[in-house]
Design a binder for these strands. Structure first.
Length: 153
DNA sequence: TTTCTGACA
DNA sequence: TGTCAGGA
């Protein structure tokens, strides 16, 4: 029987954050950053409210902005200047999205190898005769296993 | 009630 | 950045 996998489900629409929209007051409470600061950061070009077609002038922020504000706030609390906090948050977010994209491309589903549930990481070699699997050990170390494609090695 | 811009401390 | 004014 076919099983559902993140790799081929809804074109990535599952767990989408596209409809997570927040007002300035909500973002403020969620991140503990004042509305005054949020408007100031916007004036500095650090954050950008969502474009809106209706006449309403109140700001709306997407999930991405919530993440960015959270990151900046964290750096600020660590003692970095606002500019440095923005720079570091941008870098970390870029890295995080890179990792996410890489992982989604590398992930080919789950497989049970020797009674152990493992991640199928796809073909291991150029001629597609072996697949690479990985799983985490009890102490959270990553363990890799290479197995022949058809099981008859 | 919430949000907005501008201004003053 | 906080806070207040005066509107919307």
């Amino acid at each position: 029987m076919a099983r559902t996998s993140l790799r081929d489900t809804s074109n990535g629409k599952i767990f989408s954050t596209a409809n997570l929209i927040f007002g300035i007051g909500q973002i403020s409470k969620m991140t503990d950053v004042s509305t005054r600061q949020l408007r100031y950061w916007e004036s500095k070009g650090y954050i950008k409210p969502k474009e809106r077609e209706d006449g309403n002038t109140s700001r709306l922020y997407g999930y991405d902005t919530f993440l960015k504000v959270s990151g900046i706030k964290l750096m600020l609390d660590e003692g970095y200047t606002l500019a440095a906090s923005v720079e570091r948050t941008d870098a970390l977010m870029a890295e995080a999205f890179n990792i996410r994209g890489f992982l989604l491309d590398a992930y080919h589903g789950e497989a049970t190898i020797d009674g152990q549930t493992m991640l199928d990481l796809g073909y291991f070699d150029e001629d597609h005769t072996q697949r690479l699997y990985a799983h985490r050990t009890a102490d959270n170390r990553v363990h890799y296993v290479v197995k022949p494609e058809n099981g008859a090695n």
